[in-house]
Write a protein that binds this DNA or RNA. Structure first.
Lengths: 339, 339
DNA sequence: CTGAAAGCGCTTACAG
DNA sequence: CTGAAAGCGCTTACAG
């Protein structure tokens, strides 16, 4: 039993042709006799031969590879997006490198350098929080870059973003229309793009309803349950508690929820809660969470198709805005009579 | 402003040395003068030069790359594991290819072939459900493979698995010790390794407590909320309802939870619920979920360090069993008096 | 310590 | 249609 052939030359020897012909046959080039090509392909198939992507990309100067850098793949939003990216990549014959950067700047840099050495054809950066660092790095990159919901915009890259302002305005309007007047906002860290925009949408909905914004009702977490829990505790400690809370994302809503329950209050009876993302699990919470749906998978698809287009040399659409969709479930209700 | 040098030769020209010396300097070889090496490295650094991984791996026959194939990165268990894999990979200078296979056999094969062409140094397969297909594929692979919680064991690979039987037994004992006698099990698809083992642990705990197993209390879902919801509906339709349910995983518990709530019943007052996984969100449910913790990230770490060892040629430990840990929270309580 | 040379496994003009 | 040849960007014996 001969071992697997590892190169085109060995196939050539078996087939009794030049390695050029093998290369052509395997690439489905018309510059080779049909029958001959068939025979070569059959032999390669039978031997279980796989051409070396490294050797190929060395000469074609295309790696058919992209790099995806994420803060944490354990974040369900990120995972949804990456899933969407991978679907398209796989379909189009691209392999994807995945790298977590966390919030460690050193790691961030290491990751981008590694991608450069791998000669990826393009890069997608998802929900990065260390954007400030990227700018100089990205500027130097020779490949197209697509940013998805990044917290720091950059002129050096194209982007796919959820329509934060509009979606947040709609979510807040929903609370207003239920009769709420004291509505709080639990945000992400101050200064992050999504937080700024979601707060802006929140504000504008209050404005148009003629509700003055009480600064005590705007608190900040970090997008994760624990911090939101503490933020919610601050709100509950207020003399004049809110009757509804709009949360930066579903994970924050989860934390707020926990704190409300621990305080012996109920959602939506005592306090209404709205999230943002519509994570897979949000519909299964008790009560099911009212939230703004971000089509994570489609956003991933979109980022990948955009990147593919850029790789193909079509330099178009700088920035894509994806609309969110308000999903009304049972975590929101009119305020109690005596509020 | 000269464009970035793309090869070692260009650096050599700038530095006025041979490209061999550049190669050595960049690889920190001792076979080059210290000062000269420093100078070369400085020049490369200033130019923003990045060596080509493809060219290097062509000659070293090592890609410093691994492939991770998962059913779906959107599955939170999988995402946790991948996060653990990536941490170690990154630390050790390996890049990771990620590929979703879903349950599509054709895609599964495409993915493995792609990894072969990329000449990955090793492969980790996480929670695959199409194992039967793998066997012939894996047999032919030239690289080490580590299986993590796979649903079909294979002799052709090493594995990291959670101790399903022991952990499930402990979880069930917990319910028994609370006084439950009618305990149901909502499983994954019949025939999957984890399901079989978790059911076995469940059974053995009932056995040792002298509780006969009512076949009507064993139902099957598919590891996701919707199917578990239907399974729970079957249980609720029973003349003699269970007072407690042990679920295959947390997502199944989430679905069961939903169905229980929709039926106007409460957890744990009417029915106790136990999950498996301890997803990040499970502690934030209301009530917080009693469950078996799988240390997902550590399992990922372990799979990666094992793979690294195999890559280094150390052929050891065939199979690693990781203990689960029962986390008692508030979704379990003694059965109602009148049960 | 240094450099010229060969070779990793491909693709693609080039000349028939 | 076919094959010999050059070259992609590295590493590494080999001979000084």
């Amino acid at each position: 039993m001969p071992s697997k052939p590892t190169s085109i030359k060995e196939i050539a020897k078996i087939a009794g042709v030049s390695h050029s012909s093998v290369s052509r046959a395997l690439r489905n080039s018309p510059l080779v006799n049909r029958d001959k090509a068939d025979r070569i392909r059959r032999i390669a198939e039978e031997c279980g031969y796989r051409p070396s992507a490294a050797a190929r990309s060395l000469v074609t100067r295309r790696s058919q590879t992209i790099g995806v850098v994420v803060t944490s793949i354990a974040d369900p939003f990120v995972a949804g997006v990456v899933s969407g990216i991978e679907d398209i990549a796989n379909e189009r014959g691209f392999s994807v490198f995945l790298a977590n950067s966390g919030v460690d700047p050193a790691r961030e840099i290491r990751v981008v350098h590694a991608f450069e050495e791998r000669r990826v054809d393009g890069i997608i950066v998802t929900a990065s929080r260390v954007g400030a660092l990227y700018v100089p790095l990205l500027e130097q990159m020779q490949v197209p870059i697509v940013l998805l919901n990044n917290q720091h915009p950059s002129q050096f890259a194209h982007s796919v973003m959820i329509a934060n302002v509009e979606a947040s305005r709609e979510a807040t309007r929903h609370l207003v229309s239920l009769g709420h007047r004291r509505i709080a906002y639990i945000g992400d860290r101050l200064g992050f793009q999504s937080d700024t925009e979601r707060l802006e949408g929140f504000r504008s909905a209050l404005d148009e309803a003629g509700i003055p914004l009480d600064p005590a009702l705007v608190v900040h977490g970090d997008g994760k349950p624990e911090a939101a829990r503490e933020a919610m505790a601050q709100l509950l400690a207020l003399q004049n508690q809110p009757t509804a809370v709009f949360c930066y994302n579903d994970l924050s809503a989860l934390g707020a929820f926990r704190q409300i329950a621990d305080a012996g209050l109920r959602v939506p009876h005592d306090i209404s809660l709205v999230g943002f993302d519509d994570l897979y699990i949000s519909q299964y919470l008790e009560p099911p969470l009212t939230t703004v749906r971000q089509p994570m998978r489609q956003m991933g698809n979109l980022a990948m198709t955009t990147l593919l287009r850029l790789i193909a040399g079509e330099g178009l659409c700088q920035d894509i805005k994806v609309p969110g969709e308000l999903i009304v479930r049972r975590s929101t209700a009119p305020p109690k009579e005596n509020s």
